[in-house]
C-alpha cells in the first residue's frame, strides 16, 4: 500500500532553494499526523552534499539522483528520474513547489503517474487519512478543496506561504540511478541569462512596493524603487502600468500576471481592480496609498492612507529608514 509523504526538493546552482525547506517542514507535519516517513527526491549533478540539509527540516530519507544529465534542469529528464523512484517506492503523497520549475515538473509528473495534482496550494491537511489540498481558484476570487483518489496524491505549494520549522534530525541518504538516457532528450538549455539586478523574483519577495496608473508614468517609479530598497523588497506593477509600457511584463501582479504573497504589499496609486486584487490578496499585510478614498483597494488594506502618493511615499521611505537605522 502506498505510504509516506514525499517532496521533490528544488536546487539551483548547487544550493537548495527556500521552497525546499517549506516543502520539507510541511511534509513533516502531514507525515506525523499519518504516522509515516518523509521522503525527498533530490535531482541534479554534484548535489549529494545538499541531502543532509534536508534532514534539518524533517526529512527521513533523501533519494538522490546525481548525474550530469540532470543539470541544468530539463523537464523530461527530471520527470523521468522522479517517476522512476516514485513508481518503485510508491509514496502516498507527493509535494512540489509551485515555483516555475516545480510547476513545470509537477504537471509532467502528474501526466506520467496518471494521478491528480492540486496546483499552487495555500493550505494542505490530512482528512480521513487523505490529503486535502486547499487552493485559490479564479486567482483567489474563490477557493477549492481538492481530493485525489489516486496515488501519489500530488500538490504543489505556493512559495512564501508555508512556515519553515527546523528540527534536529539526520536524514538517511539513498542514491539511485536516474535511468535517463541523454541521447533521447529532445530539449537542450543553450543559455542561462541571469538577471543581474540582484533582486529576487516577485513571487519570492518578502516586501513588494507596487505602483499603478496613479504613478502617472515610468519616472514615477523612482520613489517606489527607493522605498523598496530601504525595505529590501521588490517593485511590482498593475496591469494598467505594464500595458502602458511603464514597467516590464515580469513585474505585473494580478490575475494575468504573478500571484504574490509577500509579508508586506504596499499598493501605491492602485485603485484595486478585481483582477489586481486577485493577485495580491493573500499578502500578509497590505498598505494602500491612494488619493481616492473610494478606491476598492482600501477594502483589502490593513492600513490605508488617503493622500497624494508623491508626497506620502518619500516620507514613508525616510520614516522606514529611521526605524531600520
Amino acid at each position: 500500500m502506498a505510504q509516506g509523504v514525499w517532496i521533490v526538493a528544488e536546487q539551483r546552482d548547487g544550493a537548495l532553494r527556500k521552497i525546499s525547506f517549506e516543502l520539507a517542514s510541511t511534509a513533516r507535519k502531514l507525515a506525523d499526523q499519518l504516522g509515516t516517513e518523509v521522503g525527498a527526491i533530490l535531482l541534479g549533478s554534484g548535489i549529494e552534499g545538499l541531502a543532509a540539509q534536508l534532514g534539518k527540516y524533517g526529512v527521513d530519507k533523501v533519494y538522490v539522483g546525481d548525474s550530469p544529465v540532470l543539470d541544468p534542469y530539463i523537464t523530461e529528464a527530471h520527470a523521468e528520474a522522479a517517476a522512476k523512484i516514485i513508481k518503485e517506492k510508491d509514496p502516498a503523497i507527493l509535494l512540489l513547489g509551485a515555483s516555475v520549475q516545480g510547476k513545470d515538473l509537477a504537471g509532467r509528473l502528474a501526466g506520467k503517474l496518471a494521478t491528480g495534482l492540486a496546483t499552487d496550494c495555500t493550505e494542505v491537511k490530512i482528512a480521513d487519512g487523505k490529503l486535502l489540498a486547499i487552493r485559490p481558484l479564479y486567482a483567489g476570487k474563490c477557493f477549492g478543496e481538492i481530493v485525489t483518489n489516486t496515488n501519489p496524491q500530488m500538490a504543489s505549494l505556493r512559495p512564501n506561504v508555508f512556515p519553515v520549522a527546523e528540527i534536529t534530525k539526520a536524514a538517511e541518504v539513498v542514491k539511485f540511478d536516474p535511468g535517463v538516457d541523454a541521447a533521447k532528450l529532445k530539449s537542450k538549455v543553450l543559455e542561462v541569462q541571469k538577471d543581474t539586478s540582484g533582486k529576487v523574483d516577485l513571487t519570492e519577495a518578502n516586501v513588494i512596493v507596487s505602483g499603478g496608473r496613479g504613478m502617472k508614468g515610468p519616472e514615477g517609479y523612482q520613489i517606489l524603487e527607493e522605498l523598496a530598497d530601504v525595505l529590501k523588497g521588490c517593485v511590482g506593477a498593475s496591469r494598467a502600468a505594464v500595458d502602458a509600457g511603464w514597467r516590464p511584463q515580469k513585474d505585473q501582479v494580478g490575475q494575468t500576471g504573478k500571484v504574490v504573497s509577500p509579508n508586506l504589499y504596499i499598493a501605491c496609486g492602485i485603485s484595486g481592480a478585481i483582477q489586481h486584487l486577485a493577485g495580491m490578496s493573500s499578502s500578509k499585510y497590505i498598505v494602500a496609498i491612494n488619493k481616492d478614498a473610494e478606491a476598492p483597494i482600501f477594502a483589502k488594506a490593513d492600513y490605508g492612507i488617503v493622500d497624494d502618493l508623491f508626497k506620502v511615499v518619500p516620507e514613508l521611505t525616510s520614516a522606514c529608514k529611521k526605524l531600520l537605522a
Binding site: F143, T148, N149, Y303
Partner: peptide
C-alpha cells in the same frame, strides 16, 4: 483524478485602518 470536493468564498480580511 483531482476532484474539487468543495468551493468556498475567499477568507475574509479583517477591516483595515484608515490612518
Amino acid at each position: 483524478k483531482a476532484k474539487v470536493a468543495k468551493t468556498t468564498p475567499p477568507p475574509a480580511r479583517p477591516p483595515g485602518k484608515i490612518i
